[in-house]
Write a protein that binds this DNA or RNA. Structure first.
Length: 417
RNA sequence: GGGGGAAUGUCCCGAGCGGCAAAGGGGGCGGACUGUAAAUCCGCUGGCUAAGCCUUCGCAGGUUCGAGUCCUGCUUCCCCCA
């Protein structure tokens, strides 16, 4: 599939940067893209109030689509979120209330605004609840359901896996692919959408949509999937100790987001620079070629560029500076994450163990105790050896705060208030 | 409808003669080594006012000095027969 040589800037870019996993028809899509006639959508669930790093790759694809003169559509799954996609999951997804979905949707909207231009005639954002919610069951069965073969649906990976593993697959989830297919058709009719993009796990669902389109008389539709991202050591991308790496600043600060990218494995740096920044390829090639400790420079560029896209250039530079002060100069940057503790409490003396719990660095006093055993806790850069140690106002440094560190990378400031 | 099997530490998989805070993995976290990397090695991976106390093995009862383990009922899932 990769021996195809595209003419269009869109496909050239995507292929060169490693976004392409599979495509239903390269030549046909390339022809559309060369004329700026691609209208492509990616669907996003509204199960959380923020998207996470896992979604970023497809957002970047939409952005490149726009940058190369085509039209992106961000589809909010306000309707499908009420059903739940069984793809790649063993367990039935929680079904959210409409209020939760709407609230999540509003937050997610803000993220897209940073990557896409929604001006008149530009990118489109819509919600499939618009056409899915008013659907009439009988009509839907008659117009759409008739085109689906249960035999074939049963043979699809997403379904087959669940059956083979003897996992429950509810009827409502079984219907998810019908709804997603119908979305594609509906978007084709409403916006002339002719391409759906998504992760490689979406291939089956997307191809179903293409089929449905053919049967329901839309122009030819296309599928383009990107690889599912894992790190070079095989871990799922976008998970940290704290959980998902959220895009929204309210869920994860710019500093923590910067740190996430800074901690990229050596082997991933080039790949991530191509996928998650807009830096020119020759510049990336130069950074990627750095070896040994030099590759850290590339990681900083990656972190700052990726953070700038999401949180703005200024926040990204600030995060880089905070990191520099903390890690390279060994100092205490004033804008590390922090918590406030009433002055009176500090006067009375606050136990180290509970201080670390308060700071959210460890889950319980017990864990704090154990970490002291292994030398993982530090106060103002001094290793904690006595679990009975208490913190008082006198421990505040000239910056006016007490620095708690858990491991080498996690720091929280305690500020008297 | 009948018969058989399963549910374990709230991340997952998974052992468990009536003495069990419960083997072993994976994952995660910390330490050492490094470069805020990977690999490797070591340690940790229920809670608390901590030589003690409390809460955990699908749910509810029972037997017992003592129950994850035995008995009864229930729930859910799987397999075979109808």
């Amino acid at each position: 599939m990769s021996d195809f040589t595209p003419r269009s800037e869109f496909l050239q870019t995507l292929m060169a940067r490693g976004y392409v996993h599979q495509c239903s028809d390269f030549a046909s899509l390339d022809a559309l893209a060369a004329e700026g006639k691609v209208v492509a959508y990616v669907g996003y669930d509204c199960t959380a109030p923020s998207l996470h790093v896992g979604h970023l790759i497809s957002i970047m694809m939409l952005s490149w689509l726009q940058r190369t003169g085509n039209t992106p559509i961000a589809l909010m799954g306000g309707g499908t979120t009420r059903v739940g996609d069984p793809s790649g999951k063993d367990e039935t997804r929680k079904i959210l209330t409409i209020e939760q979905i709407d609230a999540n949707k509003a937050e997610i909207r803000k993220t897209f605004a940073k990557f896409l231009d929604f001006g008149p005639g530009k990118a489109v954002m819509t919600d499939n609840a618009e056409w899915l919610a008013p659907l009439n069951y009988i009509e839907f069965l008659r117009d759409v359901g008739r085109h689906f073969s249960v035999n074939r649906m049963l043979s699809m990976d997403s379904v087959k896996l669940r059956l083979e593993r003897e996992n429950e697959l509810s009827f409502i989830e079984f219907n998810y692919m019908l709804l997603q297919s119908y979305d594609f058709v509906e978007l084709s009719r409403r916006y002339g959408c002719n391409l759906q993009m998504g992760g490689s796990d979406q291939w089956g669902n997307i191809v179903n949509g293409i089929d449905l389109g053919r049967r329901m008389g839309t122009p030819q539709l296309h599928a383009l999937t990107c690889p599912l991202l894992t790190t070079a050591s095989g871990a799922k991308m976008g998970k940290t100790a704290a959980g998902a790496v959220w895009l929204d600043a309210g869920m994860l600060s710019a500093y923590e987001y910067w740190q996430f990218w800074r901690n990229t494995e050596d082997a991933d740096v080039g790949r991530f620079l191509r996928l998650f920044t807009f830096l020119p390829l020759d510049e990336i090639a130069r950074l990627e070629a750095l070896s040994g400790a030099g590759i850290n420079e590339a990681k900083k560029v990656l972190a700052t560029e990726a953070t700038a896209l999401m949180h703005g250039r200024e926040a990204a530079e600030a995060a880089a500076e905070t990191a520099r002060t903390t890690f390279e100069a060994g100092g205490t940057a004033a804008d590390l994450p922090g918590i406030e503790v009433p002055e009176a409490e500090l006067k009375a003396g606050l136990g180290v163990l509970s201080a670390f719990v308060r700071a959210g660095l460890v889950a319980s006093n017990g864990e704090a105790r154990r970490q002291v055993q292994s030398g993982g806790l530090r106060v103002n850069d001094a290793v904690v050896t006595d679990i009975g140690q208490t913190l008082t106002l006198a421990d505040a440094t000239q910056a006016g705060a007490i620095k708690l560190s858990f491991g080498k990378k996690k720091h929280v400031l305690i500020r008297p208030a």
